[in-house]
Amino acid sequence: MHTIWTIAKRELATFFDSLIAYIILTLFLGFSGFFTWLYGNDIFLVGQANLRMFFNIASWSLFFFIPAITMKMVAEERKTGTLELLLTKSVSDRQLILGKFLGSVLLICIALTATLPYVITVSSIGNLDNGGTICGYLGLLLLSITYTAIGIFASSITTNQIVAFMTALLIGLFFHIIFGVLAQNFTGTIGQFFDALNLQSHFESISRGVIDSKDLIYFLSITVLGLYLGEWALSKRHFS
C-alpha cells in the first residue's frame, strides 16, 4: 500500500509540476460550466433545481479528458526506460498499475471537487435534491474509475502517447455510444445484451438516484478488468 501511495503521489506531483493538471482542470471546468450555465439546454432553461444537466455534460467531458490524463502513464515510462527503473525496485507490476490508477483518480477527484460551487449555487436558488446530487457525483466517480482503468490499459500496450489516447478513446466510444446504439437497433436477447454493456444507461440510472448493485458491479468489473489487462500487458515483457 505504501508503494502504491508513493507512486500515486509522484504522479500527482508530476501533473501539477507540469501544466497538464491546470490545463485539464481549466478545460474540464470551462467545458462543463459553459454547457451547464450558459449554452443550449442550460440549467436556467430547465427551470428545476437539479444538476442532472451538469452530470450529463460532465460525463461527456470526462469521456474525453480521462484518456488525455492516462495516456502518458505507462507509455511514457516504457518509452524513456524508467519502467525498468521502477520495476527493478521493490515494486510489483500490480503495485505500479494501481499507483498510476490512484494518481489519476485523485486528479479527477480534485476536478470534481472543484465543481462543488455549482452545487452550492443551485441549492441557494431552489430546493436541491441532496440524495440525487450525491448519487450524481457517485455516478461520475464510477464512470471516471472505469475510463481511467481503460486508459491505463491503453497506455500500457504502447510506447506512443497518441496511440494510447486514441485506443482509450476508441474503447471508451464503444461503452459510451456504440453499445447504446446497437441496443436500440436490436430487439430481444441481443438488444438486452448490448443494453447491459451500455455505460450510459448504467450511469443514468445511478445519477437518477437509484443505486443498484447491478450498476455497481458493471462499473467495478470493467475497472478491475481494465487494470488486470494493464498488468498483463506489463508482464508480457517476461515472455517475449
Binding site: 524513456t80 526506460g81 524508467t82 525498468e84 527503473l85 525496485k89 521493490s90 515494486v91 510489483s92
Partner: peptide
C-alpha cells in the same frame, strides 16, 4: 519481489 530490495541497479542508458 522480496529479492529486489537487496539489489541496486543502474540500467543501460540511465533512464
Amino acid at each position: 519481489n522480496n529479492f529486489k530490495k537487496h539489489i541496486g541497479y543502474l540500467p543501460e542508458n540511465n533512464p
